[in-house]
Every structure is written in structure tokens, then in C-alpha cells.
Design a protein around this nucleic acid. Structure first.
Lengths: 165, 165
DNA sequence: ACCTCACTTGTCATGTGATTTCATATCAGA
DNA sequence: TCTGATATGAAATCACATGACAAGTGAGGT
């Protein structure tokens, strides 16, 4: 049953098994068409991220890689993560020094994140700070924005409920 | 002459000596009225941050502290930095794992930062992501935002000019 | 003046995150 | 098949951050 594999994404339940499959298939397809090499290590790291559906530190990923027979030195994880981030399959959460699978792969991207400070669940949303007040400030200052990090910290619905308990 | 001490703040020149004095006096005043203890170590760290007027890593601060006769273990720096951040005298730049003095102390705060990827200069602006699209998304998702991190990376005016050269 | 409680400091030890370096292996295209 | 670009493995090292504990300092009550 789908509910057995249900997990948290964007703070809502969903069919997780299908979602993992879809994400990996999508990544494979895009790598094929764009000429990227989704090697076993990279694929495995993406799978780990999608599977856990939360922010994972590089060393947590490394542990899981080791258990699966891959190399166990930090660069193994970091190289795969860098590849995934570079091509938009994953994002780094600066606040947590951790990584999440991208929730909207393929779509143009100025991601914003909501991070629960209790359970560390992460939901991805869209943002466009460079088009708002910050963009105007930057233009006025002569600063050219190339990339933005937007991360909101707070309480996810579940932990909020818990806290009210 | 003021220009001798001129330095970068918000990508613009200014009278740095006066600015340092003002920042420290302001912090002292606020600590006095609110009952915080601006101890020598804390004051020194704030001074270092204001003086350098850029993002400093905790260990860079620690080095300077050591040279000035303070303790030389990491917690010395981190404790002072935590105090300063907690009370709004400084901010952490998540992207750089570094700290800057607050440019608008006392004023209510949802800071946004512009970070030059070449020279690491940092300018502080105001933001209100929780009141824009992200706020709406969060409300819809049932997420309660408590704090936001907004950091734009790009090129400051000087480095942009350099790059065009 | 003295006590006491809360807070601050100093230091050691350790945990966590990330990169440099160099040798080796694999793949795609000439 | 050669070659250049890219990917991997492994060792070492660097950078960032916290836990734990003992000792010192300050403000308020008695």
C-alpha cells in the first residue's frame, strides 16, 4: 500500500515509492539528453537524498555510501553532491550545511526553503528576491546578483501541532 | 584625514574612524539600557568586526583576539559572537560561515545580504521575504516562519568594474 | 561586609564539514 | 587505438563548531 511508504515532502504525505522512481527516471532522462554522466555514485547519492526526503549532511551520505560498497572518503560524497547541485538535481541548505533533492527538477530555479527547527524537515518553494526590493537595492548599489539563498526557519505543521499539544 | 581610514561599507566609501566609534558607543548605550553586559571580549570582537567591515570567520577573529591577549580557544570567539548575534549587534553569513557587524543596529531586523564572490565584501540591506510570496506559501503549507536568511551572491561594483577591465 | 546565584571566562577535547593532492581508471571522440 | 577530458580512490589536512568542566566575576539580598 502506498501509505506504508508515505513520507514527508513539503510537509505533506505522498506516495513515496513512486516519487523516488519518478525522480531518478527524470534525472536519468535529463542526463541522457544533456550529456551528463549520472554515474553509479552520483545516482546512489541522488537516490539517498530523494529517499530520505530531508536534508542530509555530507557525512551522513558518506556513511550510507560506505554501507553500499562505495568509497568512504569525504570527496566521494562531495563530488557527487557537487555534481547534483551544479546541475540542479539537489540543493545545498546553507543554514544546515546539508543537502536536499530538488523538488522541482528541470524547472528554472530560484529556490526558497522552509526549514523546521525541530525536526529539520525541509520544503522547497519558489522565490524571486532579486525581483523585489532586494533587486532594487542591488541595482541602486551597483551590485550584480548572480544567485540568491532564501531560507526560512520556523516550525512545520507537525511540530507546530506538537508544540501546541 | 578621513580618507586615510576610508573603507568599504555597503560598497561605498565613508569615514571609517567615526563609524567605528559610533558603532561601539551605540552598542554600549544599548547594553546599558537593556542590561546586557558588553564585556571586554565581546566589545573587542564587535570592534574587530566593525573595524574590518567585512565578513570574518570565527577563527580569524580568534587569531586577532589571541594577539590582543584574550583566550585563544574557539569557544572564546564563538561565545562573544553568539552574544552579538543574539542581540542584533552582528549577523552570521551562512553562505560564508562568517560574521559581520550589523549595519543597522537597533532597527527591527530581517536583514538581507549582498556578498561579492570575488572580494567577499558584504553589504546589508533590508528584506521582508515573509511578507511576499514566500509568506503566502508558508501560510498555505501551515509553516510558521520565525526567521529568514536572505543572501544574494554576485559581484560588487568594484569587482564588476575590474571584470570589465 | 558577606553570601549566593547567575553569568562569564579559560581550556581541553572532540565532533562535524570541506578541500587539496596525487595516482589510477574510465569514457567519448579523433 | 590513441588521446584528452572526466571520474574515482585514498591519504592528509584544513576549517568550522560544540561539549564539558573548573575557576573567576558581578549584582542583589541579608
Amino acid at each position: 500500500m502506498a501509505t506504508e511508504n508515505a513520507a514527508l515532502v513539503g510537509f505533506a504525505q505522498h506516495d513515496h515509492a513512486a516519487c523516488i522512481k519518478r525522480a531518478l527516471a527524470g534525472a536519468e532522462a535529463r542526463c541522457a539528453t544533456e550529456g551528463f554522466r549520472l554515474t553509479p555514485a552520483r545516482r546512489k547519492v541522488l537516490e539517498l537524498l530523494v529517499q530520505s526526503h530531508r536534508a542530509l549532511g555530507a557525512y551522513a551520505i558518506l556513511d550510507r555510501l560506505r554501507d553500499t560498497g562505495f568509497g568512504s572518503q569525504p570527496p566521494v560524497a562531495y563530488r557527487a553532491l557537487n555534481f547534483l547541485v551544479k546541475h540542479g538535481f539537489a540543493h545545498k541548505i546553507e543554514r544546515l550545511n546539508a543537502f536536499v533533492a530538488c523538488a522541482h527538477p528541470g524547472i528554472s530555479h530560484a529556490p526558497a526553503f522552509m526549514i523546521c527547527r525541530i525536526c529539520n524537515a525541509v520544503a522547497e518553494a519558489q522565490s524571486a528576491p532579486a525581483e523585489g526590493g532586494l533587486g532594487a537595492t542591488a541595482r541602486a548599489a551597483g551590485f550584480r546578483i548572480e544567485k540568491t539563498v532564501v531560507e526560512a526557519e520556523g516550525l512545520c505543521p507537525a511540530c507546530l501541532e506538537q508544540a501546541r499539544g
